Simulated assay, not measured.
Amino acid sequence: MSPRLEDENPDRLYMVTGGRSSVTDDALDMVTLIVSECEPTPGMQSEHARILRLCRSPTAVVEIAAELRMPVSVVCILLCDLLDTGRVTARKPRPAPAETRLPDPEILKQVLVGLQKL
């Protein structure tokens, strides 16, 4: 049975990130899709290699974190390492077309009031 996230050793996470606790670039959020641009190389940090294998097809940051059983913040640091070296690319999901977006909240309130009056 694999260890639970809350049982993760903070010292190990510190080592995995090289002591970094945050990223300066806001390019990544939980739904950003990550795609590998190369295969893992010998001697590469094991977490980086796992990310490259996981992301052969577009994979969301939150999915990577779940698969690695690490906090999203730690995974973002690892992803930034890979982005900086060109080993992965990141892209935001496309926004939904205008016709599929939710209506104005004010209109929804008016509809609700109208339904309640029935």
Rank of each mutant, 00 (worst) to 15 (best):
117 K>R: 14
45 Q>A: 14
24 T>M: 08
49 A>R: 09
36 S>P: 03
9 N>R: 09
57 S>R: 11
19 G>D: 01
13 L>K: 03
30 M>G: 06
55 C>G: 01
44 M>G: 07
7 D>V: 03
12 R>I: 15
37 E>H: 12
99 E>Q: 14
27 A>T: 10
33 L>G: 04
57 S>G: 04
116 Q>S: 09
38 C>D: 08
55 C>L: 05
52 L>T: 04
64 I>T: 00
6 E>P: 01
29 D>A: 03
16 V>H: 01
34 I>P: 00
30 M>R: 12
105 P>C: 08
40 P>L: 04
96 A>K: 15
22 S>D: 07
67 E>Q: 12
53 R>N: 13
69 R>G: 02
50 R>D: 12
46 S>E: 13
116 Q>V: 13
86 G>F: 11
111 V>L: 15
86 G>A: 07
5 L>I: 11
73 S>H: 07
16 V>N: 00
35 V>G: 00
29 D>F: 03
63 E>A: 10
29 D>E: 05
62 V>H: 06
14 Y>E: 09
62 V>A: 10
74 V>D: 04
4 R>K: 14
56 R>P: 00
45 Q>R: 11
109 K>R: 15
34 I>S: 00
77 I>T: 06
22 S>V: 03
37 E>V: 03
39 E>K: 15
52 L>E: 03
7 D>E: 15
71 P>E: 13
33 L>P: 02
67 E>G: 00
8 E>A: 12
109 K>I: 13
20 R>H: 07
102 L>W: 07
109 K>L: 15
24 T>I: 06
22 S>W: 08
18 G>F: 04
7 D>A: 11
14 Y>F: 13
50 R>W: 00
39 E>F: 05
90 A>G: 10
89 T>E: 12
46 S>N: 08
14 Y>S: 05
42 P>M: 07
85 T>K: 06
100 T>M: 13
88 V>C: 09
36 S>G: 07
53 R>F: 03
65 A>I: 01
68 L>G: 00
98 A>G: 09
78 L>C: 15
92 K>R: 15
100 T>I: 10
116 Q>C: 05
103 P>G: 07
111 V>W: 13
17 T>I: 02
27 A>H: 04
108 L>W: 08
104 D>K: 06
82 L>S: 02
46 S>V: 15
78 L>A: 11
87 R>F: 03
13 L>Y: 01
38 C>L: 06
88 V>N: 02
67 E>P: 00
10 P>K: 01
6 E>I: 11
78 L>T: 02
11 D>S: 11
71 P>D: 10
25 D>V: 05
10 P>I: 07
47 E>S: 09
95 P>H: 05
53 R>C: 12
56 R>Y: 05
44 M>E: 14
84 D>V: 04
93 P>C: 10
94 R>P: 03
56 R>L: 10
15 M>P: 00
54 L>D: 02
59 T>M: 14
20 R>F: 03
